Simulated assay, not measured.
Amino acid sequence: MEWTSILAVYFLIWVMTAFIMLPFGVKTADETGEVKIPGQAESAPVNFRPRKLIIRATIIAIVLTTIYVLNFNYGWIGIEVFDILPKQPGAEPT
């Protein structure tokens, strides 16, 4: 696998991980009991920490990308495992 492909896969996994992790651990002003600023949305987070999100997303993306690349190179899990290919008429069962 080319290093540019690995970088693209890493970037895609990182973005998905970051978006999935966005709502976890964030509290609104109503939940924390803080006073809202006039015009503030009800769902606006009070304790959003982007640095923590970036670090977590980076670590998870590194692990998942490593697993993906190793699976790509060694072929541990392939499409055959899922048995979703249509059966060919007259083909011998495997």
Rank of each mutant, 00 (worst) to 15 (best):
V35E: 13
A57R: 01
V15A: 06
W14D: 05
L12A: 15
V9H: 03
A18V: 03
A44T: 09
M21D: 13
G25K: 11
G33D: 10
T32H: 04
L22P: 02
V26A: 11
T17F: 06
L7P: 00
T28W: 03
P45C: 00
I62S: 14
K27Q: 12
F11R: 02
A18Q: 03
K27H: 07
V35H: 03
P38F: 11
L22C: 10
E42V: 03
K27M: 12
Q40M: 13
V46A: 04
E31Q: 14
A18S: 10
Q40H: 05
I60C: 11
I20C: 06
L12R: 06
I59G: 03
G39W: 02
A41E: 08
A18K: 09
I54M: 08
V9E: 04
I20N: 00
T17V: 12
I55C: 03
E42Q: 10
P38W: 10
K27N: 08
A57T: 09
K52D: 15
Y10W: 15
L53G: 05
F19P: 02
L53K: 09
M21I: 15
A18N: 14
I59H: 00
R49M: 10
A8V: 05
P23E: 07
T32V: 12
V46I: 12
P23N: 08
E31K: 04
V46G: 08
I13K: 05
I59Q: 01
Q40T: 03
K52N: 14
G25F: 14
A44K: 13
V15K: 07
I37Q: 04
E42R: 10
F19K: 07
F48Y: 15
A29K: 04
G39I: 00
A18P: 01
I37C: 01
A61R: 08
L53W: 11
V9Q: 04
E34A: 06
F48Q: 00
L7Y: 01
P38S: 04
P23S: 12
K52R: 15
I62A: 14
L22G: 03
I20K: 00
A41M: 05
T58A: 15
T32E: 10
I54Q: 07
L53H: 05
G33F: 08
R51S: 04
G25N: 13
V26K: 13
L53V: 07
A44S: 11
L22E: 14
A44D: 09
T28K: 04
T58W: 10
Y10K: 12
A44I: 02
D30Q: 10
L7H: 00
K52T: 12
K27R: 13
I55A: 14
E31G: 04
L64Y: 02
M16K: 04
W14N: 05
A8I: 06
M21F: 15
I59E: 05
I55W: 13
E31L: 02
A57Q: 07
A44Q: 13
